[in-house]
């Protein structure tokens, strides 16, 4: 199905669209909450030998983030006097919108997908780059030099890491023979390693270089350490977010963790087989799919946040040279190797 087909449906496409939209909109804060709670509050605090919030909600303070969100909602909406008001107000929405658009193509089951686009992977990476616009808008409209520097860093960084991200995925696409995410999942589910079909063929084995590249580049796209120069608290205070408060800041938070959720899901889909368990098809897969995807996604997210809480931050020029001199050449070599093997092995 394509967007076109959705639009062409004459019965109920409107209500279907509405339901799907609400679902996806709900996933973003849900993902942000889950990642925020599991990793930001609990994993980080344990790595730092502290408990983190323990009281709200009873079980290990799970309600803390919800409470924080509510707190942000009732805070005063502060706008700098010199800010470009309309752009300033729109920026967080642009970022969340970009997150929203990624979720449209991530499959959570054989039919649990908003849109199985023909060019799903490509689409996901294309819309993820939209968030840069939001970042630039935020940085520029804040009328603050730290915010501006942060936005400039973000723009330079996100453009540079768009390439390795794409190149990392190309290997998967070549192997699966399709750009549809659903097709990639099926290819992994039904694939085999040296004739063994027990675990299918998760591309993490054949595309481990791509997987590593993808994780590194995703980390940069998410502006997480070691690539968090755009927000760098110790240098630029919070970069482009410095002037934001209240629910607009909440939007940034949700956007940040929601996008991390989306990228983890994307990585799980591309390299770990997504919702699929080999041999499980039909209604069972439909039922288990979201849970399987969630488990795989959390494993990837764990890796991402582990790095986030462990590593120091690179410098902007080091980041650029890493992207252009290391990651992109490796990505290109990976593509060539994959292509040759694809043709040679079949």
């Amino acid at each position: 199905m394509s967007v076109l087909a959705t639009l062409a449906l004459d019965i109920g496409w409107g209500s279907t669209l509405a339901i799907k939209t609400i679902l996806v909109l709900a996933i973003i804060p849900f993902g942000a909450l889950v990642l925020g709670y599991t990793f930001l509050l609990k994993m980080m605090s344990h790595m730092q030998s502290r408990l983190g919030p323990m009281d709200p909600g009873g079980f290990h303070g799970w309600f803390q983030l919800v409470g924080d969100g509510l707190k942000f909602l009732q805070k005063e909406d502060i706008m700098p006097a010199e800010a470009d008001r309309r752009v300033f107000a729109m920026a967080p929405a642009v970022i969340v919108m970009s997150t929203f658009l990624i979720f449209l193509v991530i499959p959570a089951g054989p039919r649990t997908i908003v849109e199985d686009l023909d060019v799903g992977v490509f689409y996901a990476l294309a819309v993820s780059s939209l968030s840069v616009i939001g970042v630039l808008m935020a940085g520029w409209a804040s009328s603050n030099k730290f915010a501006l520097l942060g936005a400039l860093r973000a723009a330079g960084q996100l453009i540079a890491y768009e390439l390795p991200l794409l190149l990392a995925v190309v290997g998967v696409v070549i192997q699966a023979g399709t750009m549809s995410l659903q097709g990639i999942v099926t290819a992994q589910q039904d694939g085999s390693i040296f004739g063994i079909t027990a675990i299918g063929n998760p591309f993490i084995f054949t595309q481990f270089i791509g997987f590593a590249l993808f994780l590194v580049a995703a980390q940069a796209e998410l502006t997480q350490p070691p690539f968090d120069m755009p927000v760098a608290e110790s240098e630029l205070i919070s970069g482009y977010m410095v002037e934001y408060s209240g629910f607009r800041f909440l939007f940034f938070f949700i956007g940040e963790f929601g996008t991390a959720f989306a990228f983890a899901a994307l990585a799980a889909t591309l390299f770990l087989g997504g919702w699929a368990i080999p041999g499980v098809h039909g209604a069972t897969a439909e039922l288990l799919g979201p849970i399987v995807l969630f488990v795989k996604l959390m494993a990837i997210a764990f890796l991402m946040f582990w790095v986030r809480f462990t590593y120091p931050r690179l410098r902007e020029d080091q980041l650029q040279s890493l992207a252009w001199k290391v990651l992109i050449p490796i990505g290109l070599i990976n593509i060539v190797a994959t292509g040759i093997l694809k043709v040679a092995v079949g």
Binding site: M44, M47, Q48, S49, P312, R313
Partner: peptide
């Protein structure tokens, strides 16, 4: 560690 962006050592 905090100056170079690693939060954890600061807590340690």
């Amino acid at each position: 560690g905090l100056q170079v962006g690693a939060l954890t050592p600061a807590f340690w």
